[in-house]
Design a protein around this nucleic acid. Structure first.
Lengths: 183, 183
DNA sequence: ATATGCCTACCTATCGATAGGTAAATGAAA
DNA sequence: TTTCATTTACCTATCGATAGGTAGGCATAT
């Protein structure tokens, strides 16, 4: 595939880890240079050394998240489409239930009209690439090519929505019940 | 029904209108006393006269939104369940496409773990009451009582998720395609 | 005369961001 | 192999802007 994989220094990675955790709880406005710096034991000015400003950090966050997410999925293989769908749903389930966090791009997507353009673009890229990935799987399953991406978007919407409801109502079993059709 | 309908003065209503519009674009951190005040032509200190602090304002926002949303639906009637489902989906569609805004409680729900408790409680109330309302409709449709609320949650999740994807990808038709099964 | 609804004037805390500097590592040239 | 230049990765100190919030004054309407 394409996607030149960006590599980050140890410190840059820890900045991203910290920011991602905060962003996946409260969105774009919930991570700050100061709080990240305090958490990883450096000064906020040093965070700016690694990421010039907040929109650069935010975009890097979304980009790394997207790459990691798709890498975790692997390429859609030509057989066992149902198993790929199950694995796709399971990756959302793990984020919510095991990691206790929301989907970063679900958060960013909700507030996208208030985000700096570079962050919004990377957020869109997450959904575009996920729809393409899932669309291929649905085609393998036999869905008509012109319907495959709609079906893909429908499944992603269901998973993102299930995360929000399950999280809001503090009921992990709700996610499983809502998404039962995909498992 | 219950729910003593809170009434607000002219100014308080305009404060809520302004805050709601901002919150439905960027979430809880995207509305501020200063910006609301500027927009409606008073001083920020005067906003505090109507709403003592931000969590009170945020909770009032979610409460008014929930009441207005459910009032708009009316009571689930004993017949024409399919029409009620269509109207339910249409109210999300209108918010997104005609008003150009997200669901307030969808936004709050995404960031719920970072919200002050009173706001989180009202946000949960939105989902609880909506699940109950839709659950009744699904029972009318013939869904088993023990499955009705799961089915309800599944539909709400689909609608909330469809809003996020459609908004993120700036494609209004995507919402309609994703939710085609409900129209 | 008392309550309402707004004001001026301020506070503290925090935001993202910048200027200017330092110590240590690295790499090339003499 | 020592010298010099540059880069890396941080620091202190501070900036202007904005956040939520408060005390107290001043009209207007009852």
């Amino acid at each position: 595939m394409k996607s030149v994989q960006m590599t980050y220094s140890e410190t840059a990675s820890r900045i991203l880890d910290s920011a991602e955790r905060m962003a996946r709880q409260g969105g774009y406005n919930s991570f700050s240079f100061r709080e990240i710096a305090t958490e990883i034991g450096i000064k906020s000015a040093s965070v700016h050394y690694h990421f010039a400003n907040k929109e650069v950090l935010g975009a890097a966050l979304a980009e790394r998240y997207t790459n990691r997410f798709l890498d975790g999925l692997g390429e859609p293989t030509a057989e066992d489409a149902d198993e790929m769908l199950r694995r796709y749903a399971a990756s959302y389930r793990q984020a919510l239930i095991e990691d206790g966090q929301m989907c970063l791009c679900g958060m960013f997507g909700a507030e996208i009209s208030d985000l700096p353009d570079p962050v919004a673009r990377q957020t869109r890229a997450f959904f575009v690439r996920n729809i393409q990935w899932l669309g291929q799987v649905f085609q393998i399953k036999g869905v008509e090519p012109e319907d495959a991406e709609t079906e893909a978007a429908r499944m992603i919407a269901a998973l993102e929505g299930a995360m929000i409801l399950s999280r809001s109502l503090q009921d992990d079993t709700l996610f499983d019940r809502i998404t039962a059709g995909y498992s």
